[in-house]
Every structure is written in structure tokens, then in C-alpha cells.
Design a protein around this nucleic acid. Structure first.
Lengths: 140, 140
DNA sequence: GACGCGATAATATATTATATCATTTTGCGG
DNA sequence: CCGCAAAATGATATAATATATTATCGCGTC
């Protein structure tokens, strides 16, 4: 199905490249670094430069379609493919770097309430936690 | 084979440079980037290279004397100084980048308990939260 | 067709971090 | 004190990550 790009106002301009980058991240299922992404796409015959990748990553992040994992300097496709803004907690395994996207409004609220008492507000921005996944956790 | 006696473990080798870097970060009172730190020290007549700075930052972090603020790629002196391993929450203002080190065992426990139910364990590693400080929060 | 506009290309440069090997300093046993 | 070995630092180079700048392309519209 070769549909044409729609450029209606308000519509999300998902161009071929943007879709391709998002698909690639989704298929990876784990955080991928910008230059690794670049290499993957180039190996598929795409001709891309770092600028283009970063612009696309910035765009996808602005749409909440991907998240930047700060502690890894890597990018992760959003687990539930939401288009709308949402507020995940990213839990990064300090051992294997597997990253889990946790959607837990209750936990998030309890964090937000606590920060309120300190005069800080938790906005729709990131919470990133480093911990250990079951495989990397030391035996009990 | 006679193994040579290792250096006594537990003795923290706080050399002049390490102390100097820690003092500089403490005086700054806010996250400082590695190359900014380099510049500050050079302006004081120290002759240092990036390698040295990063080695020292790694060391200080391993001693829990400083924290790396991942979302800023910067380094912050630990608020309560020279104590041992501890588990702060770093709250980074998304507006002005002011960073608050929160020590709140109760909040941390509530996060840990929630993650347990997901099979994840929260170890002595970082929790980094982006939010807004009072100055940067929009008026209600 | 010419214009407007956002996306992409191309090039250069900035920023952050590590690798490697040489040299100096340090702690300790003799 | 001497000398060793390990740790720390110096020096140089380079890798890895990210942004700036300017030009061009594609598409919708007038």
C-alpha cells in the first residue's frame, strides 16, 4: 500500500525516514545508540548523516514515540507505541542495560506528591532509574 | 607463587588532585561539566588533561563523593559530603538545571517495593528525575 | 511556473569520553 | 634508607556523541 504523505495541518508528518527510524527502533526492542542506528540504516542502503538521525530522533521524542535513555546515551522505542504524551518510568538494568518502560500512575503520583513537599514539581518529563533485572540481580 | 601484598584495602587514596577536584565541585554547588572543570583548574595553573579529569571523576563517583547527572552529562558534589555509599534521588530542574539531591528513604522504599512486583530490584544506583523547581514552575 | 515551507543533504565543527603508553608518586617490606 | 611494585598522573591521540550552518529537494498552493 503505497499511500502518499498527507500534509494536512495538525497531522503528524511521518515521513518515510521517520517511519523507518521508528520501525528500526521498535524492532530492536532495546535502547540503540544514534551511531549504531546510523550504521544499521546505512547497511540497508540508506544514505544518512548524523544530523539527519538526530533531527529525526528529536522529532520522534517530541512526539513521545521514543525516549532517550540518558544514562546510556541511547534511544528506545516507546513500548506501547503511544502517540500522545505520557509519563513513563524508565528502569535501566545496571548490569545488562535492558530497559523496562514502566507505566504506573500510582507510583508516579507518590513520587510527585513527595516532591511537592520539597517545592518541586514533577512534570511530563523523565524519570530514569537504574536497578537490576532478574538476570543480573545477585542470588538471594 | 608468592603473591605480592596488595595495597591495604580501605585506605582511600585522596591525593592532592582528587581533593582539589572534589573541592572545586563542592564550591560550585551545582553540576559542572567535565571540560568546564578542566578549564577552571587550568585557569588556576593546574596542568591537566581530559583523561585525568575523567579518571578522577570516576574515582570520586566510585566513592559516592560525587554523582553524575546523566541528563546533563555533568557532575555534582554529594550534598552531605564524605559519607559512604548512599542512595540519593537527583531531581533536575528541566528549566534551569538546578539539581537537588533528595535523601528520602521512605520514597525510595516505595519505589523499590513497586519495582519488586515487576521483578526489578533497585540497587544502590541512581534515580534521576526531571521536574521543575519553584522558579521555573508555571504559575498556578 | 513561481513561491512558501518543512524535511533532508552535505559539510564542518563542537562536545563528551576513552585508549595507550610513558613517567612520577606512593606505600611498604626489607 | 633502599628498592620494588602498584597506583596515580602526564602526554598524545582518537573515539563517540551531538549540533551548527547553509544549501537543496519535494510538495502543496496560488
Amino acid at each position: 500500500m503505497t499511500e502518499r504523505e498527507q500534509r494536512r495541518p495538525g497531522a503528524t508528518p511521518m515521513t518515510r525516514l521517520r517511519r523507518l527510524v521508528l520501525q528500526t527502533l521498535t524492532q530492536a526492542g532495546e535502547p540503540v545508540k544514534a551511531y549504531d542506528l546510523l550504521e544499521i540504516l546505512r547497511s540497508q542502503g540508506e544514505r544518512l548523516t548524523p544530523s539527519t538521525i538526530y533531527r529525526i530522533l528529536d522529532f520522534l521524542e517530541s512526539q513521545s514515540l521514543i525516549h532517550r535513555v540518558n544514562s546510556l546515551a541511547a534511544y528506545l522505542a516507546c513500548a506501547n507505541g503511544q502517540t500522545n504524551a505520557h509519563q513513563p518510568l524508565l528502569v535501566v538494568c545496571a548490569g545488562c542495560q535492558k530497559t523496562t518502560e514502566v507505566h504506573d500512575p500510582e507510583l508516579r503520583n507518590s513520587i510527585a506528591r513527595r516532591l511537592e513537599t520539597l517545592g518541586l514539581s514533577l512534570t511530563a518529563t523523565s524519570v530514569e532509574i537504574r536497578g537490576l533485572c532478574p538476570q543480573c540481580a545477585p542470588p538471594v
